[in-house]
Design a protein around this nucleic acid. Sequence first.
RNA 1: GAGGGAAUGCCGGAGCGGUCAAACGGGCCAGACUCAAGAUCUGGUAGCUUAUGCUUACGGGGGUUCGAAUCCUCCUUCCCUCACCA
Length: 1121
Amino acid sequence: MEEINFAKIEKKWQNAWEKEKVFYAQDVPSASGKVNEKSKKPKYYVLEMFPYPSGSGLHMGHAWNYTIGDIIARFKRMSGFNVLHPMGYDSLGLPAENAAIEAGQHPIDYTNKSIPNFVKQQKAIGLSYDWSRVLSTHDSSYYKWDQWIFLKMLEKGLVYQKTSAVNWCSKCNTVLANEQVHDGKCWRHEDIDVKVKQLKQWFLKTTEYAEELYENLDKMDWPDRTKAMQKNWIGKSHGTEIDFEINGNISNVVLVHGCPDSNEPRDPETRTYEKHWRLWLKGELEKRNIKVDAPLMPEPWAPDYKKWKKEFDKLDIDENSVLIGHSCGCAFLVRWLGDIKRKIKKLILVAPWKIAYKGDGSDKDFYEYKINECVRLNVGEVVIFTSNNEEEDGKKSVKLFEKDIGGEIIELKNQGHFTYGDMGTHEFHKLFDEITEGNVWPIFTTRPDTIFGVTFMVVAAQHPRLDELVTKDQRRDVDKFLKKLKSVSEKDIGDLEKEGVFTGSYAVNPANGKKVPVYAGNFVVADYGAGMVMAVPAHDQRDFEFAKKYKIDIKQVIKPERTSIVTITKSLKKEFYENVKKFGEVRDYDSLSKIYTENVDKVFNLAKENFIGGPWYIHSEGNIKKILIYSKQKSEIFSWDNEVESKEAKKFGLKVGIKKEQLDYDELYRAYTDEGALMNSGEFDGLDNIQAKREITKYLIEKKLGRRVVNFKLRDWGISRQRYWGTPIPIIHCEKCGAVPVPESDLPIELPKNVKFGKGNPLETNEKWMSVKCPKCGGKGRRESDTMDTFANSSWYFLRYCDPKNDKKIFDPRKVKYWCPVDMYIGGAEHACMHLIYSRFYVKFLRDLGLINFDEPAVRLFHQGMLSGEGGVKMSKSKPETCVLPEAVSDKYGIDTARFFLSSLASPDKDIYWSDSGINGSARFTRRIFEYFKNWKKDKDSDELLFKLNKTIKNVSGYYENFEYRKATIEIRELFDLISRENVSKETLEKFLKIFNPICPHITEELWSQLGNKDFISISKWPGVDEKKIQSQEDDSGELNKGQLNEKIIEELKPIIKKYSDKKKVYLYVMPFELSKVNSAKIGKAIGKVVEVFAVNNSGKYDPENKAKKAKPGMVAIYLE
RNA sequence: GAGGGAAUGCCGGAGCGGUCAAACGGGCCAGACUCAAGAUCUGGUAGCUUAUGCUUACGGGGGUUCGAAUCCUCCUUCCCUCACCA
């Protein structure tokens, strides 16, 4: 057999396609608005995820990925679509930088060398790309628009900067996204432990779109698993946010009263201001378990520092004390603090007074002292209350205090000197709030129904506000715990035992006012929800374990109702039933119930014999509707109901009957997390817990103690990378103005070539690039040296393909409107959560910016499977021996043979293996085709062939549409098998080539020209289907021949009648239009039974078992009686 | 623990309640052509048997149905994703 020169054929047609721009998509609409020919066709945008061009080129696995898209692009193009099938390179980013460094080259040089190599290889596979649209993200004309989008997001408030703990890979020398960390290891370096580092980072507010990102998924035609993964990632959960008051580490509140003027109304009891807020405040605080010290000072009308000090020295003051002074009390308090030099949490001065009254020198010493500067250092927080209508001296005093100890001044309206006379009330809520500020912790829960079962709280060990909760006594224990925690590497977090430590603080359960301890725990995630959980050990397994470990109360609030239905086998049922009958006559359902009730023990024993497991119990409930038997050991409950079928049993059975003794948690080894009725929950007792969720939430909302919330797991996207090879973030840091956005007109900020690699961020090694003028004030500024995550580039590239060369705008919205969204997006499943969420986010942003008019980037998404080498070895470019190279395959078998072989292996979403013997089989086929064409002589087609041809065209079209390439190859083989048996017409051969073209473009193009065609088969019209040819053949085959329906029915009935010879009458149900064709007498005669025929839509038909619905065209439904 | 997917002859892999001992390919076996091998072509490839026959078979147990690889249910096993998410 003659050898076919595949290389020559491939080159020939690749060059011809290129020269004639065969695959160039026609751009529409043009700027002038003129509509051209191609725009009249429907558009189809098929896109494969663009690669990062590695220097080592591509292997067969990559080639296959692109081929998957190419087949559909070619099919669509022939089917009359204006197809956009572009290719580009994700050349800017970490992978490329790493590869370049490894190769010892500058990333620019490395990339510029790699891309042409990639293009060459891709062209050699015969991919039908529009090469005029190729783009590379490292091109500043591309990443200019990354920067532009960043500025737009900044304008819209979707960008912010914050210091945050980041994942740091020491090998990449950069920050990794959460998604890029697997098991505490870098996604690119499996040997590198990711470390936690604190850095100032730029973030994009992806959370702003969390709701839409989540909800839209339901409407999208994407693979279920991808949608499931994204849903999981975004993690929407509905719940209730409940306010817990935790008066954390306030060890006590100390109140110092002032010295009322002699003419001021005075309270005889307290010797201070009359009806003062002091008493009200004390009461309010004590209600909340906060200790209040409010000593009465000696002779307030003639205050003496030493005497007062003596009184005060008796009090316990520590770093968690809050000290409040009023009026002259402030003067004392500050002086005293200067003397004792102790640390306190907070100092609140209300209408402070530090100036002696004119003309009265007696207590001058009390007021006019020098404030010790250590006060400023020792006091955690200072707040000064004053009022607009305070006396001049008072106002002066405020300034004096503020000068020496600083603090926040709160000026209230018309409160004078904050006495009853000035305020008109003894309630001083602003002060109360100031003391308890931040003590309300909104806690997220999905189980508000268990609120009464809360017996402790757990705050994340990494919670930023943990310190506020730690009391003096517990400080040491907590520190010890935290230290231990840090020594454990993050990768073990999953296996970590739940551990915690008491913080010393107590929270107040808003439902019942009970105090519960607050623990710090290693199992609470700091940045989800509130970073603190309400723990219900009786009904949450994790909490349960924790409570057991630390011997915390477990309070049950849901009564278990454990039921499960197990269907008992027919034979067992029968046997059991026969035995039950021995106990009495069974006439009907009630009599059966009676037997059960009266013979509980006997039935019980019988059940024991008949059914597996034990020991057994029978539970009855008055009139027995069912017997419930369960095995305590297996903790399962079997139910059997004579009347109710197993299907219904589920509906009916679950709620009825089972009474289990209340679970005793001392004996219990696990929490009860299933449904049940509430108990120990006050007014909510007895409510079904599902209902209770609603009711308790409603109650909390009414009391303003909670609210319904939706919580997301999705975090904002940290885009900062401390790397060179990324889009520079368009920000200039000015000494005066802070972070200033670069004006749009200055874009792009190009990456400087002259940088040094090795330590830290290479960009910072180019001083010339770094130092710039501030765009705002013209002063000294430095460029932001962080670059953007590579996913920023790939989040919108598919839009740029529509208008890749536009240097005025990111793209012409009219062009994008025509082409987008992408109709078919093909890429690996590994991008399900990163790239595909980010690009959805970008699309939504650009839509809200008014640039595009659709919501999602791609209508359909397809994940291809992986191609492995012979024997299942993963192909890796770093291990050349594992790789099958397209050029090698091409030389030996021709690239079309490889395309055919891979298509025939399995559906493209499955993982497949390369096999040398397998491709031999495909090579046999391609050779046979060439062989046939060589010897072919024009002739007429047989009917059988025309039937097969048309049927194949019809089916294959559907197969290409749905990525069922394997089935396409099978039918094409079958068709060719028929063709090869005879000499067929030219038309048939041409049609055959056309449907074969998407998979094997080169050889079909070659054979097409051999048949004398001067045009390209690749853009020829897809063959039509002659339905008549298919129809007539099928009729002949007798399958659905309506004239023979009677015979068919007889044949069908014969075996059934044989089997059920005792039945007298046969009812047949047919489709209405077939009724006339069915002869009941004829059939009846043939089978020897009485036959009655009904149309399925006949409402008067006799059909006790509702069989009629089973009838189908050409097929009757049968009922025997 | 949560979610998603899967299980078919020697292998890969189609399978629409009846036309299913189950497409197609690979492998293997036999035959043809050859001195021979390869290539090519033809046939076979669950068992009994050589019949337009029966039996056993689509992970296992049950069920629905006149009829199940296909529908329901439980179980087992495997793969993937997320994983202390309150």
